[in-house]
Design a protein around this nucleic acid. Structure first.
Lengths: 227, 227
DNA sequence: GCAAAAGTGTTCCAGATACACCCATGA
DNA sequence: TCATGGGTGTATCTGGAACACTTTTGC
């Protein structure tokens, strides 16, 4: 996989988030090669000529982190970073995607063939990262926050139907702070992204809760749909 | 210049804005080759292996549009687009930069060697563009608007010292609508990006105006400084 | 009856918008 | 004196933030 390129190097990195125990985590690998041997990093890969950056990302996620892309939604807007070259010869650009998962388990995919200790690491406990990945993670997290404020991106982190408490917990994980229940409810409803289902929870020693779901997406303002 | 690449194609495009007669314009070229022969497009180029995307951009601006990069400020945050390949073989990624100019004149640089009718075209009169450049321009313009609201990007479009009217005219050109003088003044001052100079204009048949300038930039929150 | 989550309104503040008149100068 | 741009303040609206109690259920 560590091929040599003659022309500018193009790599793709994924910032894949998931909720684990009401905490926001990000998918990292531990590098098995130089440079940065042993350090934590975002899963990334060179983009081969016969794949789009998007396809390369999905391929590397399966093969290097062993997750299933079925349970993953990748936000269709890549960001570019002039990156410090991995290969000392030549110049590199990294294309970064943000992804959101639910129920993904690193290392469980049968096609993983190059796994490098993939783990879901809480963002509150981020280790030192290789390359400029620290900055890239910060960028991705800021972007996730901004999108959460006016789109339905959070949907992918939750089950199809959910209670307001579950939804609020997800937002609290993303923003890293507690939110007021009444204000949160008002704001979410004002976004008009939610619709109540006909069902209620009946799961515990407490009052049942109305279940909600996100509307089918009408317009994703993050879309960027190039051929 | 139309070399052939074996590996994923990496190109750079520039969305270069400038004020002309109180109108916001963008630098376009008219393609001299297939595909899209004769159509208008953003100036763009393959990135050769020995240059960064940023360097390639500056090079192509001089050589293809004949402007001087002295009078240009390029916003240091590239955006990536999975782009339709220029070369039918292989896959392409475009890195887009936003730039702001003042006093640049297409075609005037002595090193222009491959000029393709470069023009500053008012964004209110955008022609149909090649590739997906229509979408890229929209993206760049939205970004420029967003940045204008809380940073000093507009500084590059203006002389060092300027009156409030000049500043307001620049904002009106960017947003494509008229603004209230008093509210504009209040908002600009609240941003704390301006400082009055000791000078006043004395240029016409009207009351002299206080001249302002932007502070030296302290923190550019758009910065993204990778090696 | 008590623990645990569900549900619900009002007040306050800050920032944005709407809006109209007098001032200084050159011609 | 008039045309031109310079300069100023107040009322209103809107969205966000702060804040506490009652309801329903299982045990």
């Amino acid at each position: 996989m560590e091929e040599r390129f003659e022309f500018p190097i193009l790599t793709v990195d994924g910032a894949i988030f998931q909720l684990v125990d009401d905490e926001l985590t990000i998918l990292l690998i531990q590098r098995a090669f130089e440079p940065f041997l042993g350090e934590w990093a975002l899963p990334g890969e060179y983009i081969p000529k016969d794949r789009s950056s998007r396809q390369a990302l999905e391929h590397l996620l399966v093969h290097k982190t062993g997750i299933s892309t079925k349970q993953l939604r990748i936000i269709d807007q890549p960001y570019a970073f002039d990156s410090p070259a991995r290969d000392p010869r030549g110049y590199a650009v990294t294309v970064m995607y943000i992804g959101l998962g639910r129920g993904i388990t690193p290392g469980m995919h049968p096609h993983m063939d190059n796994g490098q200790n993939p783990q879901l690491v809480p963002i509150s406990k981020l280790p030192k990262l290789a390359y400029d990945h620290q900055t890239i993670v910060k960028f991705a997290l800021d972007r996730l926050k901004a999108l959460s404020l006016h789109t339905a991106v959070v949907a992918t982190l939750l089950p199809k139907d959910f209670t307001f408490l579950q939804l609020q917990t997800a937002y609290e994980a993303i923003f890293g702070k507690t939110l007021d229940k009444r204000n949160f409810r008002k704001k979410m409803l004002s976004l008009q992204l939610l619709e109540p289902t006909s069902a209620m929870t009946k799961d515990g020693a407490h009052r049942p809760a109305q279940l909600y779901r996100f509307h089918a997406p009408k317009s994703t303002d993050t879309a960027n749909s190039f051929a």
